[in-house]
C-alpha cells in the first residue's frame, strides 16, 4: 500500500469546510447552553426532598442516560414530526437529542457536586439568616461548580464530539461536509484526516483553557 497524499481537493473548496465549522460551532453552543442549564435544573430536582420534583427529574435522567443519542436524534427527526403539527429541522432534532442527553449526564454531575459540600457550609449560611435558595446560590453552587469543573469540561468535550451525530440527519457540520468532500472526490483518507485535525484544533485549546480556568478558581483553596 502506497498512498500518494494529496490534499488539493480538500482545500479547493474552503467555503465547504467553513460552513461545516460554523455548523459545528452553532450546534455545540446551543447544546452546551441548553444541556448544562437544563442539567442544573435536573440536578437540583434530583436533590429535592419533594417527590413531585424528584421523581420526574429521576425519570428524565434514567431515560436519557439509557438510550443512545443517535436513536434519540433519529426519533426526533423522523418520528416526532408524525406526532406533532410542525416541522422538525435537522438542527432542531440533533440539538434536542444532544441537549437532553447532556442534561441527563450533567444533571448527575451537578447533583454529585452539590452533595459533595459539607453540611457545615449550609449551616454557616443558614446561621446568617439565609434561605435555602440563597445558600444554594451564594455558598453551595459556587463551590460545587469549582469541584465539578473537570467533569463539566469533559461533558463539554463530549458535546463537541457528539455534534458529529447531527450528520445522520444531514445537518451541515464538519463531518457532514467531510463525507460530502470524500464522496465527490473519492479521497476519504485526506478528507477524514483533515476533519479529524480540525476537531483536534478546536478541542485541544479548549481543554488547555479549562486547565487555566481551574487553576484560577483554585486560588482560594
Amino acid at each position: 500500500m502506497n498512498h500518494n497524499w494529496n490534499f488539493d481537493a480538500v482545500w479547493a473548496n474552503p467555503e465547504a469546510l467553513l460552513a461545516g465549522a460554523a455548523g459545528t460551532l452553532r450546534i455545540f453552543t446551543i447544546c452546551l447552553v441548553l444541556g448544562l442549564s437544563l442539567g442544573l435544573l435536573v440536578g437540583l430536582g434530583r436533590y429535592s426532598v419533594r417527590q413531585w420534583i424528584y421523581l420526574p427529574a429521576s425519570a428524565f435522567v434514567e431515560f436519557f442516560r439509557n438510550t443512545p443519542v443517535l436513536v434519540q436524534i433519529l426519533w426526533f427527526y423522523f418520528a416526532l414530526p408524525m406526532l406533532v403539527p410542525f416541522e422538525i429541522s435537522p438542527l432542531m432534532a440533533a440539538a434536542l437529542g444532544i441537549s437532553l442527553n447532556s442534561a441527563a449526564f450533567s444533571g448527575e454531575i451537578f447533583r454529585g457536586g452539590i452533595q459533595s459540600l459539607e453540611r457545615s457550609q449550609w449551616e454557616g449560611a443558614q446561621a446568617l439568616g439565609m434561605t435555602d435558595a440563597q445558600a444554594m446560590r451564594r455558598i453551595i453552587l459556587p463551590q460545587a461548580i469549582k469541584r465539578m469543573l473537570p467533569a463539566l469540561t469533559n461533558r463539554a468535550i463530549e458535546i463537541f464530539k457528539m455534534s458529529t451525530l447531527a450528520s445522520a440527519v444531514a445537518y451541515v457540520e464538519l463531518l457532514q461536509q467531510g463525507k460530502l468532500i470524500a464522496s465527490i472526490n473519492y479521497n476519504p483518507i485526506e478528507a477524514y484526516t483533515v476533519i479529524a485535525l480540525i476537531f483536534f484544533a478546536f478541542l485541544y485549546p479548549l481543554v488547555q483553557a479549562t486547565y487555566v480556568l481551574e487553576r484560577k478558581l483554585r486560588q482560594g483553596d
Partner: peptide, 23 residues
C-alpha cells in the same frame, strides 16, 4: 423558613469548625 431566617438574624452563631466560606 421566613420565620427561621428572621430568628437567625437575631441569634448569631459561631461554630467549632468556623464554617467560613472558602471561596
Amino acid at each position: 423558613e421566613s420565620e427561621l431566617t428572621r430568628v437567625r438574624q437575631r441569634v448569631g452563631m459561631v461554630f467549632q469548625q468556623f464554617n467560613l466560606f472558602p471561596h
